[in-house]
Design a protein around this nucleic acid. Structure first.
Lengths: 240, 240
DNA sequence: CGCACGTTTGATCCCGCTCAAATTGGGTGG
DNA sequence: CCACCCAATTTGAGCGGGATCAAACGTGCG
């Protein structure tokens, strides 16, 4: 029975991989059972508390990491300290620029985060031996490029109200468990300061725009962090 | 017939490739003589006049193109017509998102442009047979991602004066023939309107900031388009 | 309880947008 | 070669959205 065989196969999976999203939707999805086992020999699970810096800009890359749980902020800073978030990573995104020697961004845990770390040399070797793996990572990179370009439109051309609505919509699409429904409920993974850095706005403006969305009945806010969107289409309309 | 009869001895390059930057710095650099010849059997050189739309957003991808000469604008528009440039491509960049079915951006010739077009299926087949090719394209994609993220910082966190200085510095680094020197002279590949769309500013603000840079002696402008930067370091200082 | 921090709200200012007009330069036809 | 036109650009005047500065509020934690 083929299903039984697959089950046996599954039972041989590395423990760490059994419940990992990367095996399904992430880069590990292209690996055979053997390859996955080989990969798992090099990986270790690492936890980062919210706020911890995981990778510093312009520092050597020592390894790559698959996000297993939580949200990671990618940011860049100007000499005078002005900061801009340039990306958010969710499970099962890969952290680290393939084959690069240095980071081009700072990575920080936005929430508590679990990462499956693999040493630089190990992943690069597997990539060289397995073109499908590079192909899969390429697909993720292209998606990140699309997201960055979409965000450029938001940063360059939208009003503060539209920016905040766009951010909430983005989070709702990524975090909310009830996919595809008209309503969404979630905890914001970012503080107002982070949201400001993401949107190119000040804390005060973010706060004011969220208050306005609340006053207009588009969202509900509890304890600053918890947000409900009773009608996603209505939020979507405010994204410009 | 002369080009078709390239050879078993592979000492001759396809005519089109002989002076093409893609062969050195671009993706064709990873191809052997034979592979290059095979590639060239599928390519054709296409010219686009300044202002022509080359790829429309959300339209099917029919082929890829290597920029041989000129500058290509990548842009996105909101429903109400607000526009944002999300990238500029110079020789020898590859135009088109690998393996994607649809464009995610609009591509327009900023200047007169020569493109080496290769049909979608042909390039994808070569990529599948030649992992080094995908690797090379991956490197370019990563560079584009870096550029997009750098630009997000400019869009989100810089003042109008810093944005314009950053734009001029970017162009100077890409276009000016005298590499590595302290001075630079070049023709702007974009109109003020394009520059505004790139920087998230209005035409008037771009113009005012350029006038200010001129008044301050940081740049010289001739006939609107031609710009000289006597001291690149001084321009760099104004980029924030 | 009381401190500290994140957030909200208020008052005011200024950079960049909007609307409007003048200027420049390139192209065209006589 | 010049007169004219048209589009791109520059310049000016005034306004407003978002920043800045400041204070009050809520929440979690020792």
């Amino acid at each position: 029975m083929s299903t039984a065989r697959i089950d046996i196969h599954n039972s041989e999976l590395p423990v760490l991989c059994q419940s990992c999203e990367a095996r399904h939707k992430g880069m590990c999805g292209v690996l055979s059972g053997e390859q996955l086992t080989a990969m798992a020999r090099h990986t270790r699970r690492v936890h980062h508390a919210a706020g911890e810096e995981m990778l510093a800009d312009a520092m050597p890359i020592t390894g790559y990491g698959n996000v297993m749980r939580g949200v990671v902020k990618l940011s860049k800073v100007l000499e005078d300290g002005r900061q801009q978030l340039v990306g958010l990573q969710f499970a099962p995104d890969l952290l680290g620029r393939l084959f690069a020697k240095e980071n081009r961004v700072t990575a920080e845990a936005a929430s508590d985060v679990d990462i499956c770390m693999v040493p630089k040399a190990a992943l690069e070797r597997m990539v060289q031996e397995n073109p499908a793996l590079e192909h899969r990572i390429m697909q993720q990179t292209l998606r990140e490029l699309d997201e960055a370009r979409d965000w450029m439109v938001t940063l360059g051309r939208k009003s503060a109200a539209e920016k905040v609505a766009s951010f909430l919509y983005l989070i709702a699409s990524h975090i909310d468990p009830s996919q595809g429904e008209a309503v969404a409920t979630f905890d914001l993974p970012l503080t107002r300061a982070d949201i400001g850095d993401f949107l190119g706005l000040t804390i005060e403006t973010v706060s004011r725009q969220m208050s306005k969305l609340k006053a207009d009945g588009v969202i509900e806010i509890e304890n600053y962090r918890h947000v409900s969107v009773p009608d996603l289409a209505r939020l979507r309309m405010r994204c410009g």
